[in-house]
């Protein structure tokens, strides 16, 4: 099914997407919000710039964006895949619980904030470029990979991993991360670590035509929290 987003407006557009079992191709997308909200079992291809909260609560569907995505993409996503052939805005994958998000370019502030994993669900975000500050804030589970293919400096902003108490962040960089919060430790990823993310990297490589040689051509730093209960000592019973 082909849909012209700007003619429909987001409510009508999303209703059509909800009510079809077919794959959907959207043209002329200019900021229509909530596309694919809660969707499962279909592929939605978007040509243009989808609006905020793209794929919120996504439950198994695949969304391909030919262009840039705006803010809050993949909010509370449970399953499925979002592929962005461009950049993503702020709060990418907020509270995401499962599925994968691939961003070819840059991702904004608070990427992967409060992502968490549960049983077989392990959310994954791969950002080809760099990210804004607060990467992986409150991270409670899942995997974030920042490749920094667009930069020679360290590819994340400030305050990476604040409040992080679970999950893993891989950052590809020739420079070591600095100023990490107390409870987060960083180490150079070893062979086994890299092996663990190889499939994901290969998927990224396939999707965006970046060679594995290039991807693996730099050091990866692995950030992990050293405590699952970082705030236990904070309180005094009163």
């Amino acid at each position: 099914m082909d849909l012209r987003a700007c003619e429909l407006g987001y409510q009508a557009l999303n209703e059509k997407i909800r009510n079809t079992d077919e794959d959907v191709v959207i043209y002329d997308c200019y900021g229509e919000r909530f596309i694919g909200s809660g969707a499962s079992n279909k592929t939605i291809t978007i040509n243009g710039t989808p609006g905020n909260a793209l794929g919120a609560y996504l439950d198994g569907a695949t969304i391909v964006v030919n262009g840039n995505a705006q803010d809050a993409t993949g909010d509370t996503m449970n399953d499925g895949k979002i592929i962005i052939n461009g950049n993503a805005g702020d709060a990418l994958g907020y509270a995401m619980r499962g599925g994968k998000i691939f961003v070819k370019g840059y991702a904004g502030y608070r990427t992967g904030i409060h992502m968490k994993e549960y049983k077989d669900k392990k959310p994954v975000i791969v950002v080809g470029g760099s990210t804004g500050s607060f990467l992986g804030e409150y991270l409670a589970g899942g995997l974030i990979i920042v490749l920094g293919l667009d930069t020679d400096s360290f590819p994340t902003g400030y305050f990476t991993g604040v409040g992080m108490h679970g999950g893993e962040i891989f950052i590809r960089s020739s420079k070591a991360p600095k100023n990490l919060p107390k409870q987060v430790s960083a180490s150079v990823a070893n062979k086994d670590d890299i092996k663990g993310i190889e499939d994901i990297l290969a998927e990224f490589s396939d999707l965006f035509g970046v060679s594995m040689e290039e991807i693996l051509g730099k050091t990866f730093y692995l950030l992990t929290p050293n405590a699952r209960n970082p705030y236990k000592q904070l309180y005094t019973e009163n």
Binding site: H114, Y118, Y138, A140, G141, R228
Partner: peptide, 8 residues
């Protein structure tokens, strides 16, 4: 969330 993790 996994058993035993803080829910923040």
């Amino acid at each position: 969330i996994p058993v035993g993790t803080d829910a923040i």
